[in-house]
Design a protein around this nucleic acid. Structure first.
Lengths: 120, 120
DNA sequence: TTTGGTTACTTAAGAATCTTATGTATATTT
DNA sequence: AAATATACATAAGATTCTTAAGTAACCAAA
């Protein structure tokens, strides 16, 4: 008989809503082309298991970003299995700048609300 | 003929999704009882007009938090108009601690992804 | 005085983003 | 042989939000 204890931050948090696109863009800008599964694993590493991106969120997001012209996709066969590598386009780089600026504003605003004693 | 230019950060950003409950709890913990409209104005001030909480999001949120036992409500008549003042309960204070811890984790994780060169 | 703007709350309909669940298919480990 | 991991896809449902419409009172300006 096993009892599972969910440690704090196991990504039940709704705070990550809206941040997936920004995360994907930043990773691709940083690392060059990546495939979907690789993105989920990288994020898991970076957040020490805290944030587990679900396939049901990831793949539709990638498709949408490709449709928007922010990413290109190239299928490659590795070990007799297909991987779809995504790379960022010039428009995607512009979008990245905007998204990161939005994120900065968001973080600053949350600080202003949560920590109103500090000035910015 | 008027042309409206939306300045950067006019809260079109999806990043605020999931943060409303945390914001309300923190404000009530900080300031004591507040009424709905007051909360929207305080947030607008704190974020310099950047974040405008919509009534359609605010009021259902307040009702839900009250139903969860995190807030109490008291109707008061001011200038022949009804205001509903919300105050935080002991359970609400516990919830506030948890929500703020979640927010800290979220902010730290976003930093790890967006700024992987820094160590935490 | 009546029109428009502000204050103050409510709620329904629809949009956006996500989780859960299911499916396909191959590789690797037990 | 069975379970786990890799790798992608997508439909159904949940959650949280925006938009919109309604009620009601106050106040300033035309």
């Amino acid at each position: 008989m096993y009892i599972y204890i969910r440690t704090l931050g196991m990504s039940t948090s709704q705070l990550y809503r809206g941040s997936l696109t920004t995360i994907i863009l930043k990773l691709l800008e940083e690392n060059g082309e990546m495939y979907g599964y690789e993105i989920t694993q990288r994020v898991k590493e970076l957040t020490q298991g805290d944030l587990n991106i679900k396939e049901g969120a990831l793949y539709p997001s990638l498709h949408k970003m490709e449709a928007a012209g922010h990413l290109t996709v190239t299928a490659k066969k590795v070990d007799n299995r297909v991987r779809k590598y995504y790379d960022i386009t010039p428009a995607g780089k512009e979008e990245t700048v905007n998204r990161l600026a939005e994120l900065d504003e968001f973080l600053a605003n949350m600080q202003r609300i949560i920590n109103p004693k500090l000035s910015f």
